[in-house]
Amino acid sequence: MRLRRWRRMSVPYALALLGSAWMIVLFLIPLISQLSVSLMTGDPEQGYNLTWNFGIYAELFGPGAAVPYALFLGRALLFGGAATLITILVGYPVAYFLAFRVPRRWKTPLLSLVVMSLLVSFIIRTYMWGFILGGHGPILTWLRALHLAGPDFHILDTAGAVIGGLAYNSFPYMVLPIYAVLERIDPRTFEAAADLYASPRVGFFRTTLPLSRAGIFSGILLVFIDSVGDPVNSQLLGGKTTYMIGQAIQDSYLIQQQYNVASALSAVLMLALGVILFAYARFFGTENIEDLV
């Protein structure tokens, strides 16, 4: 009898074992062991040894840093934030349109169009943007022919191009969670809102928007985090003043093989994102969202 109960109790653990073990060993432990790598000193010739060199963080981000990593991090947060804002501003109306304005039988096809671009590798798509927006490309050629742009005007190599690329690449990841939440809203809520509030606009800000904040939050999670760390867009679309923390991590790991530096940069990025998202959740995660938005 006891054996049987024990067996019953162990069922969830048995089921969860492999999956959680895999994530713990190959995701969680690496995430933490990277902290120990960041505290090592050495070079690729002599190897790296753990010396608890906490000073590296001050060295990389302090005022006297040889390479302005703090600038690269700040720039990444700024670009990522701008891109996230754009995806919300553009993605919300799209999700709203799909959830409320589209007849049922057209929802699936129209929603498929939103994710259709994901069928093509994002590297190819980003590369093609560079190809299209480049000095030789059709857009600038037309703009110049119509005298809408001077010979000096260019789109690539600018902060705008990088932010646009980041927003473009993560756009579907903002639309889908917002849509998923809007779909769940009970339409009777709107009737109640229509009875309570004078204008549809007030009704929207008092009911729909607050109800969709979970969707916006998971959209932000998906979009902001990967935009800030992205090394691709600034490489393919950016210029000499768009170097971001993601590129710095990649370069110091793969090119200069400064494992300690790369790990420290990566740990700081993780920490910065964690703090920002935690603050966001604390700030907007209260029930009084109506008063904040």
């Binding site: 690496p30 995430l31 990277q34 999670l221 998906l222 090394p231 990025l269 993780m270």
Partner: peptide, 25 residues
């Protein structure tokens, strides 16, 4: 475990990549 799943999805790719490499090293 649910928390780990959540962090796994939301961790930035660049950090996951760098962390995995440091682990393998």
């Amino acid at each position: 475990i649910w928390g780990i799943v959540f962090v796994d999805i939301s961790a930035p790719s660049i950090v996951v990549g760098a962390a995995s490499l440091s682990f393998f090293l």
